[in-house]
Amino acid sequence: MYAFEYHKPSSVEDAVAALSGKDDPKIVAGGMTLLPTMKQRLAAPSDLIDLGGIAKLVGVREDGGALAVGAMTTHAAVAGNDLVKSRIPALANLAEGIGDPQVRNRGTIGGSVANADPAADYPAGLVGLGATVVTNKREIAADDFFTGLFETALEEDELITSVRFPVPQKAAYAKFANPASRYAIVGVFVAQTDGGIRVAVTGAKGSVFRVAEMEQALSGNFSADAVAGIKVPADEMNGDLHASAEYRAHLVTVMAKRAVAAVG
């Protein structure tokens, strides 16, 4: 790991201030992606700004019928949170399935969302629930937040402070994990929300996406059979050693069926 300056601000304002005037500063939340990348010398930030000292960014609270999850809340904390478990159990399940227990004890929702790994689970949860990403500057709808492979709508000096999840009527997440890395090869989040049925898919393409055809079909007939015949085109899918594009496309349908069945 190359050398860097370490900063541990105690407020969001200080964190933003610490970003300015640096060569190549990087924010570290849980560090579950950034630290391995730095260890392998694939990243060499001049400054590391650790959000671990900002107590305000941790925790889950009710926010006008929605749940606001602080950016530095760990996956384990989300999975074990009583509010999340009772109001959006599918989100608790999703968090419970991220990485392994030790990753869940360090990795955070803000870090995962800002990193926008195409195989991460949270993007499916955010888009599937129609969540809102709250930053130090503004609020961004999840549908507009994930803009591509490891790309988001965040600006250089913008920090995620929380993610606000509206409470759905029902929801579920079904994941087909990469056997080696255990990231999602395909993860499908299905939710019945006030704004209608949402079906969000992670792992399959460069970024999370919704499947309009499935959403429509489920609006008329909320059953696994309704999506069983809907195939997403394979030509836009990722393909790698562990799953070809064709297989991924197939798994989108299978995981959608399973998520719908789990919603009940």
Binding site: P36, A76, N105, R106, S181
Partner: peptide
């Protein structure tokens, strides 16, 4: 790559991978 777990210790009572924490 933070996967094998040979480095697991407890920090404030919770298990973490000490190879993926400064």
């Amino acid at each position: 790559t933070s996967q094998c777990g040979a480095c697991v210790v407890h920090v404030n009572g919770k298990s973490v991978k000490s190879c993926t924490m400064l």
